[in-house]
Amino acid sequence: MADLDLAQLFAEMATNLDQQPTVDEALEETVRMAVEAVGSADHAGVSWCVRRREVDTPYATTSLVKELDRIQYELDEGPSLEAFEEGVATLVRDTSTDERFPRYSAAALERGVRSVLSCALSSPRRTIGALNFYAMHPDAFDDYGVELAKIYASHASIVLANRSLEQDLQVAVDTRGTIGQAMGILIERHRISPKNAFDMLVRGSQQSNMKLRDLAAHIVDTGLDPSAV
């Protein structure tokens, strides 16, 4: 593929991802376009960091990818985990001969997957996941294919990191507003100060083992006091 065609492909990809209304839809579109961008891949999926070291596979082109990722997480070994933890691209040329991830490679080989390429999805502050490519024949990803996948992952990372930040900020704003509404209910009902209302919420959160934002939302919806939850 000519350099000009590649540049146009990545520009269109970034625009398409940026137009997705939510992070989930952007992740889904990332996976869909990945196989098209890296033609030597038969399947693709994304490993996404849910919180700290907890990793999930929210989207994949087939159930086979999700199954292999689940096995990888359970075994705590595999290319996407290495890519995620090290912030690199990890290539398994042939699962029948790979010695770095013996149990994972054996599971992949048993299911007909012979090559795996995992590319870190990195933001300026941290690695947010990994984009994973799978092929049913060995040595599917040559040097050009690896570089192509890395460029695609790099472009996708920028968009996904921005969308994730936007979503986190929106959640923070929504959470703050909900807690404020719950405090307002308690202030009016008990004729107490904002500090005492917040303290009531904190005690109720601890006693009910609910997150503060969830307890606040419950109070706004039901009108119940924290002690009654």
Rank of each mutant, 00 (worst) to 15 (best):
D69S: 10
L109C: 10
R32V: 11
A156Y: 02
M200N: 03
L160C: 02
D214A: 13
D142V: 08
V38F: 05
Q167N: 05
G129R: 01
A37C: 10
Y104T: 03
M33V: 13
L75T: 00
L186H: 01
L160Y: 04
A44Q: 02
D98M: 08
T175A: 15
F101W: 08
E36S: 15
H137R: 14
R114W: 04
R126F: 12
R213L: 07
N196K: 15
D174E: 14
S96D: 13
R203Y: 08
L6H: 11
V229S: 01
L131Q: 04
D42P: 09
T30E: 00
R93A: 12
S96L: 14
T97L: 05
S105Q: 05
K211P: 10
E82S: 12
Y104M: 09
Q8V: 15
G129C: 02
N162A: 15
F198G: 05
A130K: 06
S227H: 12
N132Y: 06
E25K: 14
E67D: 10
T127C: 05
Q206W: 13
Q20E: 09
S205N: 00
S40G: 07
Y152L: 05
P124C: 03
A14Q: 12
Y59M: 15
N16Q: 15
L27F: 09
R111T: 03
L9P: 07
A197D: 04
A156L: 03
G145D: 05
V38E: 06
S193I: 03
Q20C: 07
P226V: 02
S193K: 03
N209A: 14
V146A: 05
V92R: 04
K195W: 08
Q170N: 14
S47Y: 13
T95D: 00
D3M: 10
R111M: 01
Y144I: 13
T127N: 07
T175H: 08
L165I: 12
V159M: 03
G145E: 05
D225F: 01
R163V: 07
Q207E: 15
S63P: 11
T127Y: 00
A149N: 00
S47T: 15
A197S: 06
S122W: 07
M1W: 12
G45Y: 00
L75P: 01
D143V: 13
C49H: 12
A44L: 05
R93T: 14
R111D: 06
F101A: 01
M210L: 15
R53V: 10
G184A: 01
L201A: 00
A37S: 12
F101N: 00
E110P: 02
F133A: 06
S205G: 06
V116W: 04
Q181N: 12
S227W: 08
E28Q: 12
I151H: 13
R213T: 15
E12P: 08
L6M: 09
T57R: 06
A130S: 13
V23A: 05
S96G: 09
S63C: 10
P194S: 01
L224S: 13
T15Q: 15
Y104S: 02
L91D: 07
H43N: 15
D139V: 05
D142N: 14
S164P: 02
F198E: 10
M13N: 14
